[in-house]
Design a protein around this nucleic acid. Structure first.
Length: 827
RNA sequence: GCGGAUGUGGCGGAAUUGGUAGACGCGCUAGAUUUAGGUUCUAGUAUCGCAAGGUGUGGGAGUUCAAGUCUCCCCAUCCGCACCA
């Protein structure tokens, strides 16, 4: 029986009551249940910066709505939450506020956890993870030692940003316009030994795997695909004339346009190329040029617009097919880090080569001509870079790109001067950070044995938490107790790594650890395979490349270690848009933020949740509107009143036969709405239209109630209200929790099943037909669905407003779309 | 430069398969209730026109009986990548 309820909506009271109920009943704690279909819903965990911002609220509301909906579908739903707790801001805060990074971080976590709980998110808090806990990062350390044993990680020198005043390494985001963010000193580049993970070994699989992810946005897949940057070309060798040194006698270049090979008029090498170093011996001017070029460092974006400069080395390269000698240049536009650090230059068919050739007066030899008349080619103004037909290329003349590629490849292969090769843009992942607040790298550097893994029995390598933090780099470097250790292999005094991991390491596998975070004898166990892959992952588009690529990579590494069986971690991905106010992104620096907490206090969590879902579709940006929030609040108040004042009908079954037309229409609206909202939730994730549809239904209910009060009317209205309360339960869970009891149910709404569509209620015997003349709307008629085509045409033609436009005209054609439209074509 | 997305009333947005453009909400206008004010309710609200009707989805062309939706060209804004050989 229904409980009496105040017809005034009091958000604070009902939210506290619902949250208490969930807490008391452990409502969101889940266990593995092989007999039940699982659903793993995960929103990207936050960095504990101090307080939630609107972007978090949007992200977690989306996840919660999906998770709660799937639960109502009868699935075993896991929705966990945790903290991406390591990172630079904690160090900055430590300097500013004289508080240890650990203390600052744990305090923030406590505060933000309360905020998340206030928003009513259905998390299984028993699975909470913080990446700064030794129980978490110890397994990352263990895994790293496994990768080390397999040769999947290695150490090499790499450049860092060095602040000469603060005497510390800076992260890229701490370098502003080439200067240190605190000191303002010009940042230097230093080469120091750092650890790398061989993501390039998985480049091919990471690329191909994108095709197995139809549940990912096209945009994200394209971005990853471009980032991996696969290209197919030929690696070929030019002999260098008169060089005795066997290492430098041959110059390797990589090209994706072997069809232009006969148009090579010079070759160019990067300033750091060994051949450039060799040529610089005894050529002081060239040596000076090379030094200058290696020192010019600027933002990568400026590189592209940098003027192309170079210098002749005096060396000659011998063309592998023609035997002709061409000059070897050092050029600033050739990157040592891509391919072999050397290129063959074809000025006629590459714009950079063309500009360089014009500047240094090098020959431009056309070897490709357009294969279609509409394509123009004027080598006086620019290079012709399109593919076409070969010319001036001897025996290859007349071939198209594909044929020329194959013919030149087999020619070079026979001569032992080249072969086909696939190249990737992707670089190995540098994971060393010269930072304190991160996972210590579990390596000991021994003067005799080199880099040695910390043995499993000695893990975790604990990060000292109770420290004095000051400027000037990682405190670990000042802690002999931390770094003075004996070599695990030979026992001689050695030095522990004081670098820590890139925090992307922690966020690359947390989704798996949520399945079994209490497992203290292994990184993962069988529970991971029950839950994985994540069915729905939700987060910001800013993670489209790095986080999502590293996580996919880590998943494959874990698979190859036998820890998981699946190939990909995230089956479906939803990338939410930004939260804007006054047209620009909400940010502290712009001073246009909205504090979620103040809104919750004023309107309640449900209003906030409803607004962020209603204002726009999830993947698009959301324009903040205070009056829009008022609108959501007003709707909830109105709906509360309607439901609270509704008296459930006693027991009469809804059978169509007894219903009048108005009652039948309301039932029709109820069930078409249920069908639409179900589709919006399950397939489209368009919560904005789902909410709009329930509002429409409520509008229809209000109009209907004007007809008067009787048992059958109450029954039909009751059905509509039950559907609305259930359909809104994922959006405004506290609100629905309270009203569901009022509607006469003993069971909590979180355990109620999603409403079912009654197909019979959706049957209609008539259809509204749109009448058009020459494609323009001229009228509408209601007809029996069973009407035959001829009678329908007759009715359409007899329509008064149609007649006005057909009078005196000749009827050419009549288009009939059954149950929808008649279009009369006249002239 | 390359790649991607977006462009619809005063505003956020809807139109899912080529078939009634503007659902739903905000705002605004008028009225009612209460009133100190807000709240709440009713009606209206793309635009031009008294009306009949015309026009209208960034601009231009095209396909079609029919285009916000498909094709081509152009413009604007946003995002990503950026000398990748």
């Amino acid at each position: 029986m229904s409980k009496t309820i105040d017809s005034r909506y009091s958000a604070q009271e009902i939210e506290a009551a619902a949250q208490k109920y969930w807490r008391d009943h452990d409502s969101f704690k889940v266990e593995e249940n092989p007999g039940k279909e699982k659903y793993y819903c995960l929103a990207m965990f936050p960095y504990p910066s101090g307080h939630l911002h609107m972007g978090h609220v949007r992200n977690y509301t989306l996840g919660d709505a999906i998770a709660r909906f799937q639960r109502m579908q009868g699935k075993n739903v896991l929705q966990p939450m945790g903290w991406d707790a390591f990172g630079l801001p904690a160090e900055n805060a430590a300097i500013q506020n004289r508080v240890a990074p650990a203390e600052w971080t744990y305090g923030n976590m406590d505060y933000m956890r309360r905020q998340l709980q206030q928003l009513g998110f259905a998390y299984d808090w028993s699975r909470e993870i913080a990446t700064c806990h030794p129980e978490y990062y110890r397994w990352e350390q263990w895994f790293f030692t496994r990768l080390f044993a397999k040769g999947l990680v290695y150490k090499k020198d790499a450049e860092v940003n060095w602040d000469p005043v603060d005497k510390t390494v800076l992260a890229n985001e701490q370098v502003v316009d080439g200067r240190g963010w605190r000191s303002g000193a010009v940042v230097e580049r230093r080469r120091i030994p750092q650890w790398f993970v061989k993501i390039t070994d998985y480049a091919g699989e990471l690329l191909e795997g994108l095709d197995t992810l139809p549940g990912w946005p096209e945009q994200v897949r394209t971005m990853q695909s471009n980032w991996i940057g696969r290209s197919t070309g030929i690696e070929l060798q030019f002999d260098i004339a008169g060089v005795p040194d066997p290492q430098n006698r041959v110059l390797s270049v990589y090209t994706t346009r072997p069809d232009t090979l006969m148009g090579v008029t010079y070759v160019a090498v990067a300033p750091q190329h060994p051949l450039a170093t060799l040529a610089a011996e005894g050529q002081p001017e060239l040596a000076r040029f090379i030094t200058e070029q290696s020192h010019t460092r600027m933002a990568e974006a400026d590189l592209a617009t940098l003027e192309k400069v170079g210098m002749d080395t005096g060396l000659k390269a011998i063309h592998p097919i023609s035997g002709e000698q061409v000059p070897v240049y050092v050029a600033n536009f050739v990157l040592m880090s891509y391919g072999s650090g050397a290129v063959m230059a074809v000025p006629a068919h590459d714009q950079r080569d063309w500009e360089f050739a014009r500047k240094y007066d090098l020959p431009i030899k056309q070897v490709i001509k357009p294969d279609r008349p509409e394509v123009s080619c004027d080598l006086e103004t620019e290079a012709f870079v399109e593919k076409g037909v070969l010319m001036n290329s001897g025996r290859f003349d007349g071939l198209d790109f594909t044929k020329a590629f194959d013919a030149i490849e087999s020619h070079l292969k026979q001569a032992g001067k080249g072969e086909k090769r696939v190249n990737f843009r992707l670089r190995d992942w540098g994971v060393s950070r010269q930072r304190y607040w991160g996972t210590p790298i579990p390596i000991i550097n021994c003067p005799d044995c080199g880099a040695v893994s910390v043995p499993e029995k000695d893990l975790p390598v604990l990060l000292p938490e109770n420290i004095e933090f000051s400027e000037g780099g990682s405190p670990l470097n000042n802690m002999p107790g931390f770094y003075q250790v004996d070599c695990p292999q030979c026992g001689t005094p050695a030095r522990r790594e004081t670098d820590t991991f890139d925090t992307f390491m922690e966020s690359s596998w947390y989704y798996a650890r949520f399945a079994c975070r209490d497992q203290n004898t292994a990184m993962l166990d069988a529970r991971a395979d029950y839950w994985l892959p994540v069915d729905q992952y939700i987060g910001g588009i800013e993670h489209a490349i790095l986080h999502l690529l590293y996580a996919r990579f880590f998943h494959k590494l874990m698979r190859d270690e036998g820890l998981v069986q699946s190939d990909e971690p995230f089956a479906n991905l939803l990338t939410q848009g930004m939260v804007l106010k006054d047209g620009s992104k909400m940010s502290k620096s712009k001073g246009n933020t909205v504090d979620p907490l103040a809104l919750i206090e004023k309107y309640g969590a449900d209003t906030v949740r409803m607004f962020v879902l209603f204002a726009s579709p999830p993947d698009q940006s959301l324009e903040w509107s205070d009056s829009g929030v008022e609108g959501s609040f007003r709707f909830l108040k109105r709906l509360w009143k309607i439901v609270a004042e509704h008296t459930p009908a006693d027991g009469s079954e809804l059978t169509d036969a007894k219903l009048n037309e108005a009652q039948r229409q309301l039932r029709l609206k109820t069930h078409t709405t249920v069908a639409k909202v179900t589709d919006d939730f399950a397939r489209r994730h368009t919560f904005n239209t789902a909410i709009a549809a329930t509002m429409e239904l409520i509008n229809a209910v209000q109009k209907f109630e004007g007809d008067g009060d009787n048992d059958l009317n109450r029954a039909v209205v009751g059905e509509a209200l039950r559907a609305v309360v259930l359909m809104l339960a994922p959006v405004v869970p506290h609100f629905s929790h309270a009203l569901w009891y009022h509607l006469g149910h003993d069971q909590a709404v979180i355990d109620a099943p999603w409403p079912q569509v009654d197909r019979a209620a959706m049957q209609q015997s008539t259809a509204l037909i749109v009448l058009q003349v020459n494609g323009k709307l001229r009228g509408k008629i209601e007809v029996e669905k069973s009407i035959d085509r001829q009678s329908l045409e007759e009715k359409a033609l007899a329509n008064e407003s149609v007649l006005r436009f057909t009078a005196g005209k000749q009827i050419r054609k009549i288009i009939v779309v059954p149950e929808k439209l008649v279009n009369i074509v006249v002239s």
